[in-house]
Simulated scan of single mutants.
Amino acid sequence: MAAFRISSDPIDPAELVRALGHARAGACVTFEGWVRDHNDGRTVQRLDYQAYAPLAQSEGEHIIDEVHERFAIVEACCVHRAGTLAIGDLAVWVGVSAAHRGAAFDACCYIIDEVKKRVPIWKNEHYADSESAWLHPDNKPIV
């Protein structure tokens, strides 16, 4: 399993959790980011994610390497979708296994925060009023 990847296919959390299992791990923490039906007072119909794959892959792998250096973890993985996603679809998944829950929680938070800041993945929200908008990582429209 790749520790970081961009996927055009749906994410299978059960498969990813199994891949994090290890005899040294006593905890597994996961985060799931789903497509919601609203943002900033507007009704969202779907999202389109685009990524600059070579840089996204490289930066994502660098983030995973960092968590191994900074936290006492066993395994870490992050998968982010690209393409068109419907309401309720799983857009991003992060999982971390560690001997203890604290390290797993901290590493999981670090991964999602750094992915949002550093990995070149862009989100285009499509609204019920037929407009769409590209968003900053803080979910505010780019104007």
Rank of each mutant, 00 (worst) to 15 (best):
A82N: 10
P120I: 00
S58I: 05
H100G: 06
C77I: 15
L47F: 10
V92A: 08
A104H: 01
L16G: 03
E131A: 00
A133K: 00
V67M: 07
Y52M: 10
I63Y: 09
I112T: 09
A51T: 10
K123W: 02
A2K: 15
S132K: 02
V17N: 01
L16I: 14
R46M: 12
E32D: 12
D40Y: 11
I73Y: 11
G95A: 05
R46S: 14
L55Q: 12
A82T: 15
A51F: 11
D40P: 01
A51V: 10
A14D: 03
P13K: 12
D40R: 15
V79I: 15
D65E: 14
A53K: 11
W134F: 06
H62V: 09
L55P: 14
H80L: 11
N124T: 09
E114C: 02
D89G: 14
E59A: 12
S58F: 09
V96H: 07
K116S: 04
E32R: 13
L90G: 02
H62F: 04
R42G: 13
Q45E: 15
Y127L: 03
G21H: 13
R70Y: 14
R118G: 06
H22T: 07
A19K: 11
W34K: 14
L16C: 05
V115C: 08
L16R: 09
P120R: 00
A72T: 11
Q50H: 10
V29K: 00
P54M: 14
T43N: 09
A76S: 13
H62E: 10
A3G: 13
F71D: 06
C28P: 01
V29A: 03
H62K: 14
D113C: 11
V44W: 14
V74L: 05
P54W: 11
A25L: 03
K123R: 05
C78H: 04
W134Q: 01
G26N: 02
Q50F: 06
G88L: 11
E15L: 13
H22E: 06
K116C: 07
I11A: 07
R70I: 08
Q50P: 00
K123A: 04
R36W: 02
L135D: 04
L90Y: 00
H68W: 12
C28F: 07
E59Q: 13
C77H: 10
A103Q: 12
E75G: 12
R5T: 12
I87V: 15
A3S: 14
I11H: 06
E114M: 11
R36N: 05
S132M: 00
R70P: 08
Q57R: 15
A27Y: 09
A133C: 03
A14P: 00
L20N: 07
L55W: 08
K117V: 04
D138N: 15
F105T: 00
G95Y: 00
A76R: 09
V67F: 08
D12F: 00
V143S: 14
D40M: 12
E75L: 00
G102T: 10
N39W: 04
A2T: 11
A23V: 06
K123T: 05
K116D: 03
L85S: 07
G88F: 13
L16Q: 08
V92G: 03
A25N: 05
D138K: 08
I63L: 10
R101Q: 10
I142V: 14
F71E: 09
V35T: 13
